[in-house]
């Protein structure tokens, strides 16, 4: 990108054009692991958004003080701190969901998407732009997780947000259990990534964008 982009564009880029999961293929572990229901996907998305926003905020505020070769240490320290805060908050206020997410809340620490935003954007740009970027990436991440969560929950359990959406005839022993099991996660994501690539290829051919 040669010319300076506006905050809004930076935000939109994170949600759509450069979606962290579907386009950049970052942060795959939680994407696969916690999307067996929409509820889990949304909570995970919000926790990660909180962490990326705080990490970008702190990094870009301190960007002139951070010495280059200790920057990774500082990123990791910041991220780990806010992940712990998010984890404690989830445990205190939505205990049931936090139990289901289990180790994947602390694992946000090693979500490459977050450290990547600190390295690529926050350390170089101002606070406003970094925040716009963080919100864009966070919401893009949540969006991708939700798509998977919706598909897998409907097909795997016949429910959406724990409410039944498919007829009883389907639920009565005919749910695609495989969708809520690990293989279902890989297959669904594979197909979704394929569809996204297809749409993007068409868009590029049509001379849009």
């Amino acid at each position: 990108m040669a010319k300076e982009v506006s905050n809004l564009e930076q935000f939109k880029d994170g949600v759509l054009g450069n979606n962290p999961v579907l386009v950049q293929l970052l942060g795959m572990c939680p994407t696969l692991a916690v999307t067996n229901s929409l509820e889990n996907a949304l909570v995970m998305g919000m926790a990660a958004t909180f962490v990326v926003v705080m990490s970008n905020l702190i990094t870009s505020t301190l960007r002139n003080l951070i010495k280059p070769h200790v920057r990774i240490l500082i990123f990791t320290l910041t991220i780990a701190t806010f992940v712990t805060i998010a984890d404690l908050t989830l445990k205190a206020y939505i205990f049931e969901v936090s139990k289901k997410l289990g180790a994947f809340v602390p694992l946000i620490i090693v979500n490459c998407m977050i450290i990547c935003r600190a390295e690529v954007v926050a350390i170089k740009k101002g606070v406003a732009k970094s925040l716009a970027d963080a919100f864009g990436i966070g919401i893009g991440f949540t969006l991708a997780l939700s798509i998977l969560g919706v598909v897998r929950e409907i097909l795997g359990s016949g429910t959406l947000m724990n409410r039944q959406v498919l007829p009883d005839a389907f639920l009565d022993g005919h749910t695609w259990v495989i969708m809520v099991l690990p293989p279902g996660a890989f297959l669904t994501l594979g197909v979704v990534v394929g569809v996204v690539n297809h749409v993007r290829a068409r868009g590029a051919k049509g001379g849009a964008a």
Binding site: L62, V70, L77, T81, T84, I85
Partner: peptide, 20 residues
Amino acid sequence: ESWLVLVMGVVFACLLAGTQ
């Protein structure tokens, strides 16, 4: 080189202790 890391370490530890 390291004052910032040390300061942040202390600040974050206090923040976490508070949340906890």
